[in-house]
Nucleic acid binder design. Structure first.
Lengths: 107, 107
DNA sequence: ATATATTATCGTAATATTGCAATATATCAA
DNA sequence: TTGATATATTGCAATATTACGATAATATAT
């Protein structure tokens, strides 16, 4: 159906899955990598770098913003996008918690 | 278009995104958590636990198997699914590498 | 061989995602 | 104000994902 039955899972499972979903696109990975390499991060540069149309990049940035992985500061007519260090660390910690607590008992 | 332009990204970016994609569904998160708690892991038990139809669970297991996150051993007419520790650790390491190397220079 | 139990595959419907053109909005510069 | 530049939003087409019923495949037990 394309629809996920979120109601049968708990909040932690849904949020974790959603975090993974935001990261599950190579364009968004590339955007994060590119932003992290720049001193100043401007959308138009991202468009040229990634090679996708401007609306597409804008949409990907919106998704990254939806979980606060990045933040954009308006600088004149440009926007300086950068990684939100606080969320970044929190997400990494959460993913590690998932990997560490998912232990193996069989096989 | 629903289609990702994988050709404009590098292998690392595509593989990383694909790994995140496999983990981007709450049912698959729940399956991994359930498997990790069991001594013996049988698909039929998973169906009862998760609350999705058997073909749906089977499909999710297939996706988890596609990147070797789990492995299934045939035990009679049942199958013992368990987490593939080797891949598990490798994936965790890879994700941490991504988080650690994506540094911040602006803002 | 037949019946039962377990898991996989196929086909299909509904919804989600990706990407872009067109357009809107916002900001600066002259 | 007008024009140029940068980013966001809308609308749409194509493909992907999710879920399930029906069915196939596999293995055991009788």
């Amino acid at each position: 159906m394309g629809i996920t039955k979120t109601q049968i899972f708990n909040t932690e499972q849904n949020e974790l899955a959603n975090t993974f979903k935001v990261l599950s696109n190579p364009a968004r990975i590339a955007i994060l990598e590119f932003i992290s390499k720049q001193d100043a991060c401007i959308c138009n540069d991202i468009v040229e770098e990634i090679g996708l149309a401007q609306p597409t990049i804008s949409q990907h940035l919106k998704e990254l913003k939806s979980i606060n992985l990045i933040k954009g500061e308006i600088e004149g007519k440009k926007i300086c996008y950068c990684i939100n260090l606080k969320t970044w660390a929190a997400v990494q910690k959460r993913l590690n918690f998932f990997f560490n607590t998912t232990k193996v008992k069989c096989c």
